[in-house]
């Protein structure tokens, strides 16, 4: 970086002429930004689909359909089923197995069913929440990484200034501009990550609430049916 006057301050010029640590920081931030955006889009698609499938399953379930028919359909397409469908399937399968065994009390059957549903619920929630930790990390750390690059770049710029007799703004301006690009990149990576993280945790929370409610309600239904049959 030569501090001559009338320098071209175009973006590429600044990035190419940046010092090595600053370039490294920029590369890290670019990677983090790419990854976080990728996960943001993956999560966006996944949550959209989860909401859609959950909506249609609830509609079907509360629409008065036959539980046995539904179970058979879900068990057949287990891989492509929604989260709530899999909870339903796991619970109902456990319920059927326990019912076939004689001599078990109603409480035991219902407790077993609930445990099975809760295990599946935990697993599904874990799947839904995957990558969110990365978004949170990028959102909270990348501004600091960018700031580090900026501080480093400005340090170098001022070190270069120490050797000249007449200090002018033109001698530090390119260094500072280049350093500030690191901060800009850090913020560019962080802002969408934070927004995505907050939004997706909220969506997942709501979905989890719905699933827990469903578990309770399904347990109630099974209990009612068993007492009726007995």
């Amino acid at each position: 970086m030569n501090p001559e006057l009338g320098q071209d301050l175009s973006l590429l010029h600044l990035i190419i002429n940046a010092s090595l640590p600053v370039q490294g920081v920029m590369a890290i931030l670019l990677f983090a930004s790419m990854m976080s955006w990728w996960y943001i889009f993956i999560k966006m698609f996944a949550l959209k689909r989860a909401l859609k499938v959950t909506d249609s399953f609830e509609k079907e379930f509360w629409g008065g359909g036959d539980i046995n028919v539904m179970y058979k359909r879900v068990a057949a397409e287990r891989e492509n089923a929604g989260e709530m469908e899999r909870i339903f399937e796991a619970g109902f399968r456990e319920f059927m197995k326990l019912r076939q065994q004689t001599g078990l009390s109603l409480n035991v059957i219902i407790d077993g069913t609930r445990r099975a549903m809760r295990a599946t619920y935990q697993r599904e929630l874990d799947g839904l929440e995957s990558h969110l930790a990365f978004l949170a990390t990028v959102g909270s750390v990348s501004p600091y990484v960018g700031l580090f690059g900026t501080v480093w770049g400005i340090m170098l710029a001022f070190q270069g200034l120490a050797t000249v007799a007449q200090a002018t703004l033109a001698q530090v301006a390119p260094g500072i501009a280049e350093a500030l690009i690191a901060t800009a990149m850090g913020l560019f990576a962080a802002i969408p990550a934070v927004v995505g993280y907050n939004r997706y945790t909220h969506d997942i929370d709501r979905l989890a609430n719905r699933m827990e409610s469903f578990m309770e309600e399904f347990s109630n239904i099974l209990q009612r049916q068993t007492t009726k049959a007995a």
Partner: peptide, 13 residues
Amino acid sequence: PHISRPGSSLAAG
């Protein structure tokens, strides 16, 4: 149990 693996979507990339 079915473990849902987060798919890597090409479209998202």
